[in-house]
């Protein structure tokens, strides 16, 4: 159990002269996450009554409170209502994907896709690229470039570094939390206490920290996009 601690399975594929490699477990786990989310979405979708006059069903109440929660906690931080409406699906999907990924580690033989730096870094870079594109779209190219030499021209390198540091800290925060929790659980259950204690640790690192980190990831997405668009 411990001999492959901190390592992961990598699949090397070579198609003719073109060869690539990827983490097979991570990809399979993220498919599982997608399947879980789509199934949940279908169940919730079915509960949505088409008739407005009807009394809302139980699943519809769940769906509504979920959407209101996401709206109130995440996208209400956006400075413009238009942006909030536009980015609501993106931010909500980000939150739910990270949440279910983090919670997946609780199930035996499953591991979080977010335990892989590739996943968190790709999400963070996606947010980074998106925030920059939105900033260009909202402010215009010249004003966007001008934002890098504010307040003084010699701050240019500092501004660039602070922009680049955002996706790095964004991705490493999630990765470090999930991976650190997973390592801790593995080590404790292999070396000290194989029963009972891992359950508590799973509940804390898998469920509690996982939920907090998913929330933080989503709200930082909102914050980064907001800052890029505003300043």
């Amino acid at each position: 159990m411990l001999e492959h601690l901190g390592e992961k399975l990598i699949l090397h594929v070579s198609l003719g002269s073109f060869s690539f490699s990827f983490d097979i477990l991570t990809v399979i786990m993220s498919w599982i996450v997608i399947i879980v989310l789509v199934v949940v979405a279908l169940i919730l979708r079915r509960g949505l009554g088409q008739d407005i006059e009807e009394k809302p069903s139980r699943t519809q109440a769940i769906l509504e409170s979920l959407i209101n929660l996401l709206k109130g906690q995440l996208t209400s931080s956006f400075s413009s209502d238009k942006l909030a409406k536009e980015l609501f699906p993106f931010v909500s999907t980000m939150f739910m994907f990270v949440l279910v990924s983090n919670w997946l580690s609780v199930i035996p033989y499953c591991e979080s896709p977010t335990k892989d730096l590739n996943v968190t870094l790709s999400l963070a870079l996606l947010v980074f690229v998106m925030s920059q594109l939105l900033a260009v779209r909202m402010k215009g190219g010249m004003k966007y470039l001008k934002g890098f030499v504010e307040p003084y021209p010699f701050m240019l390198p500092l501004n660039i570094v602070s922009e680049i540091a955002k996706p790095i800290s964004h991705s490493f925060r999630l990765f470090g939390n999930t991976f650190g929790g997973a390592i801790l659980i593995t080590v404790v259950s292999a070396k000290f206490a194989p029963v009972l204690v891992p359950a508590v640790l799973n509940a804390f690192y898998g469920l509690f920290v996982g939920a907090i980190q998913a929330f933080v990831f989503a709200i930082l997405t909102v914050a980064y996009i907001n800052v890029a668009v505003e300043s």
């Binding site: 901190g6 390592e7 800290s169 925060r173 470090g176 650190g180 933080v216």
Partner: peptide, 24 residues
């Protein structure tokens, strides 16, 4: 508060990542 703590935590996370890099 949660947002601020998450940002404050980044330095701790950086040290965790450095430790992981050192170890593995």
């Amino acid at each position: 508060m949660v947002l601020g703590q998450a940002i404050t935590e980044s330095t701790g996370i950086y040290s965790l990542v450095v430790a992981i890099v050192l170890l593995f």
